[in-house]
Design a protein around this nucleic acid. Structure first.
Lengths: 122, 122
DNA sequence: TCCATGCATTGACATTCGTCGATATCTCGA
DNA sequence: TCGAGATATCGACGAATGTCAATGCATGGA
């Protein structure tokens, strides 16, 4: 096959990715589908500017944590909205929530992001 | 202020983030709003499992590049859909597109992801 | 015991997103 | 010149997302 067109010359030309043989040349070429879902979930949680700001604020905070009441002001959104965003970050494993009396304190967790990034930068 | 409740004891208690003074204690606490948008755009592009798989496939490909015709098969989606996903990745700066004859070749670009991750992991 | 406070949940809404089929555009070979 | 193949664009659709006001649920102080 191939050989007939040769797009540029030294190009391998479309290989149809080992023709779905799956065991030929690129064993890890197809990332695990579940793994992709996992990785995408982390990135999706950071795919909103507000959540990026929230997580950055918490991570760069002197004490390494911030309470809900300190988050709503800077981002300029309603309290329920910020609560919703923080819930997503926690669910993605990018933050932890700890209730102390009336206040909810959040800490940033960088590990999932680091791991997800590694999956795409080898 | 403060002093009256003291959530746990050694806790700083809600500080209202320097009361919007902005020049007090946390100069870099509030990430630049435009920067957050930038960072979120990159992560948003990777917030879909299909795009994660596409980029991983390309990045892990032996030649470091893949043509459109080799991408549609593995992900099991229609050609227009894959084309759409690749367009988003290119627009986010995570891939480059190069037309060679009838084929469109894509390469992965890891820099934007690395930079975006750095913005949140210090 | 009661009330004020900090936060989460609910319901609603407009917007964006992922997907497809149909179609247009471009390139190459006959 | 024509036809076939590879890819992008368009239009449409259901699903998911970001946002808010209203409300519920705890907790701690009076």
């Amino acid at each position: 096959m191939v050989a007939v067109h040769d797009p540029t010359a030294a190009q391998t030309a479309p290989t149809k990715a080992a023709e779905a043989s799956g065991a030929c040349c690129a064993p890890s070429a197809e990332i695990d589908e579940a793994r992709a879902e996992q990785v995408a979930k982390v990135f999706k949680a950071l795919g909103d500017p507000t959540r990026v700001r929230l997580l950055a604020m918490i991570a760069e905070s002197p004490s390494g944590e911030m309470c809900m009441c300190d988050l709503t002001g800077p981002v300029g959104l309603s309290q329920p909205t910020v609560s919703h965003h923080m819930k997503l970050l926690v669910e993605a494993g990018l933050a932890t929530r700890e209730q102390r009396g009336r206040w909810a304190y959040f800490q940033a967790v960088t590990d999932p992001l680091t791991e997800a990034t590694k999956a795409l930068t080898r």
